[in-house]
Simulated assay, not measured.
Amino acid sequence: MEIKILGSGCANCKKLEANAREAIAEMGIDASITKVEDIKEVMKYGVMRTPGFVIDEKVKSYGKVLSAAEIKKLIQAQD
């Protein structure tokens, strides 16, 4: 599973990344987390408000910081 955090590296982006790391650690799954900070790359996903949250190239959320619990629900919905 590949998770991407889309954003400029702001505080909200960092918090979303931390929550994503917490969620995958709690679930014990094998997932990579990549930060996409290039605004042109972010825009390719159609995300106009950051942070964006992407699982396996599908945008799942943008414009808010998901909690670890919310991220776990999104990951479980992927299975």
Rank of each mutant, 00 (worst) to 15 (best):
L16Q: 11
M43T: 12
A31D: 08
M1C: 03
G46F: 13
A11G: 08
C13Y: 02
E57L: 10
E17W: 11
L6C: 02
P51R: 05
I33Y: 00
V54S: 03
Y62Q: 13
S67F: 01
V36F: 12
S67E: 06
K73G: 07
V65M: 12
K64I: 12
I55H: 14
N12L: 04
D30S: 14
L16I: 07
A25N: 13
Y62M: 12
V47M: 01
Y62W: 06
I5R: 03
S8P: 14
D38T: 13
I33N: 00
E26I: 08
K44C: 10
I29R: 05
R49G: 09
Y45W: 05
C10F: 08
D30N: 15
K44I: 03
E37R: 15
N19A: 07
I71N: 08
A69D: 15
D56W: 03
G7M: 03
A69G: 12
R21K: 14
K44S: 15
K15M: 05
G7Y: 13
I29G: 00
K15R: 14
N19H: 04
V42P: 05
G28M: 07
K64L: 12
V65Y: 08
K44R: 15
F53N: 09
A68Y: 02
I39C: 07
T50N: 09
K15V: 10
N19Q: 05
V47S: 04
Y62C: 12
S8Q: 07
A23V: 01
